[in-house]
């Protein structure tokens, strides 16, 4: 069985089936929805961080733009949710294209510039001067298209899409070339790899995933504010989930979301400061002792992790 089939059958399929049937047995659909969203975001971030090494601190920018793309399409254009989702993805792609020049920056500079870009978009969207267009800081309400079940399964479809991209990257020459670029972009160019084109594709795919996720998020929760959609901790959660499990793998982000977001829901909601405290310590310990994530406990023994 080829590796990509194995990854699909043993990791993605069980996850999709589980998330697909759980709503029939488990009442807290919002919790399931949030898990699904983070599966999608952690894999979307994995696409850019795990395979190209760019650290997108401002990943939430794409998510927020997607959420607002969806909301404004519903409000101003009164489109169907399906078309609004497409517009959400498109909005994130447009932001991704605008930010392509950031890919020239390396290391810390990229991470900081990307964070600044997400903040800038937030300040624009939430500006009271633009109230007629974006509703400014007062938030949007989309009660007329509220459809929890449908939006939940749309989120599941986006998770599937994000995971398929990761499976593709993990088992193809294209993904290998991305990792080569991550390791050494000049060497990669010398090996004939079209460096700029390849990493732009990864960047835009990653942006698209976050934009679609933001759109479906807007659809599902239906009332939200700029600081909800552009909450920097969304970037950070997705990043830490992916890192904790192990970036560059399909399984790593899944494990990260299950364990850490599970932990968050056990203690984080009631006493957020204590969760933040544990979180901070966890990140420090992770970087110092297990920078390749939990899956590296297995993969460093030479066993292939999906």
């Amino acid at each position: 069985m080829p590796n990509y089939v194995r990854d699909f059958v043993f990791v993605l399929l069980p996850l999709l089936v589980l998330l697909g049937v759980l709503p029939f047995f488990y009442r807290n659909e919002l919790l399931l929805f949030n898990f699904t969203i983070y599966f999608a975001l952690a894999q979307g971030l994995n696409v850019i961080y795990g395979f190209t090494g760019y650290l997108p601190f401002g990943y939430v920018g794409f998510f927020g733009v997607g959420a607002y793309g969806f909301a404004l399409a519903i409000i101003h254009l009164t489109t169907s949710p399906a078309l609004a989702l497409a517009i959400a993805g498109l909005a994130a792609l447009v932001l991704g294209v605008i930010l392509i020049p950031l890919l020239r920056l390396s290391g810390a500079y990229f991470a900081i510039a990307n964070l600044a870009a997400a903040q800038a978009v937030y300040h624009i969207v939430s500006n009271p001067d633009l109230q007629d267009i974006t509703k400014g800081p007062y938030g949007v309400s989309l009660a007329n298209v509220f459809a929890p079940r449908l939006s939940y399964y749309s989120a599941l479809a986006i998770t599937a899409l994000a995971s398929v991209v990761v499976i593709w990257f993990r088992n193809s020459r294209f993904g290998l070339a991305l990792q080569a670029i991550r390791d050494d972009s000049l060497s990669a160019a010398m090996a004939g790899i079209p460096v700029v084109r390849q990493r732009t594709i990864a960047w835009l795919l990653s942006a698209l995933i976050a934009g679609l996720t933001g759109g479906v998020f807007a659809w599902h929760i239906s009332v939200f504010y700029p600081e909800t959609a552009f909450d920097i901790s969304i970037s950070i959660f997705a990043l830490v989930f992916a890192l904790f499990g192990g970036a560059t793998t399909l399984l790593g982000p899944v494990i990260g979301v299950l364990l850490l977001y599970g932990l968050y829901n056990l203690i984080g909601i009631t006493i957020p400061q204590y969760f933040q405290l544990i979180y901070g310590i966890l990140i420090v310990v992770l970087v110092l002792f297990l920078p390749q994530g939990i899956v590296s406990l297995v993969s460093r023994r030479g066993i292939r992790v999906p």
Partner: peptide, 18 residues
């Protein structure tokens, strides 16, 4: 070299792309 790839992957990539 591409440090995280195997020796064979290093060479194969160059053959495939270049």
């Amino acid at each position: 070299p591409f440090l995280s790839l195997t020796v064979r992957e290093n060479v194969e990539l160059a053959a495939a792309y270049g």
